[in-house]
């Protein structure tokens, strides 16, 4: 199973759903994730302007995360919609579109994709268990050399454990 994090990049699911959300005061449950696709390059201008638009979107308390991608001509927003069951600030889809319009971004209704977004499963749990995307090696070692010494260490460790099981020292 895969989930998408705030950046909209699909990744392996890091963990199962959070145990008890109330015990750790997780503020959101089911919220929304909206994508505005095929935006006009001339409206997005360039990467620095996209970054600033992302900043401006994030200024809204009701927007949990926003990502404005110049190359993909896409804006994705995780937001707390008016029907969501929580007491936090809300913003509607129309208000979002209106805000983007004020920022010079005109969205086409046919290029909008919206879905329910489980904050606990997709955002919160993921953030606490992100998967490894690479394997660094200590300075002065290549990854291959390091993998070999790791293997040796693991063997030694296993042997040690084995000795302990059989009562050795």
């Amino acid at each position: 199973m895969t989930t998408e994090n705030a950046s909209g990049v699909a990744k392996a699911d890091g963990a199962s759903a959070e145990q008890s959300t109330s015990a750790i005061n997780i503020p959101y449950g089911m919220i929304k994730r909206i994508e505005f696709n095929n935006l006009k390059k001339e409206e997005l201008i360039d990467i620095p302007h996209c970054a600033r638009l992302q900043y401006r979107l994030m200024l809204h308390d009701a927007i949990i995360k926003a990502k404005v991608e110049f190359v993909k001509r896409r804006i994705s927003v995780i937001y707390n919609h008016p029907e969501a069951e929580n007491k936090k600030p809300k913003i509607s889809r129309d208000e979002l579109i209106e805000f983007l319009k004020k920022e010079g971004i005109n969205v086409d209704a046919s290029n909008i994709a919206e879905r329910d977004y489980d904050y606990v499963k997709e955002f919160y749990s993921y953030a606490f268990f992100p998967p490894e995307i690479r394997h660094s090696a200590p300075y002065g070692w290549t990854r291959e050399e390091y993998a070999k010494i790791q293997e040796k260490r693991n063997r030694k460790e296993k042997a040690k454990k084995g000795m302990l099981i059989f009562g050795g020292k």
């Binding site: 994090n5 705030a6 950046s7 990049v9 970054a51 992302q54 990502k67 998967p131 490894e132 660094s136």
Partner: peptide
């Protein structure tokens, strides 16, 4: 140096510093 092998965001930080996490 080395950052995280398990970072939270896989977006290369193109909108840095507004992609933090």
């Amino acid at each position: 140096g080395r950052g995280f092998d398990n970072p939270n965001y896989l977006n290369a930080g193109e909108n840095c510093p507004f992609d933090c996490g």
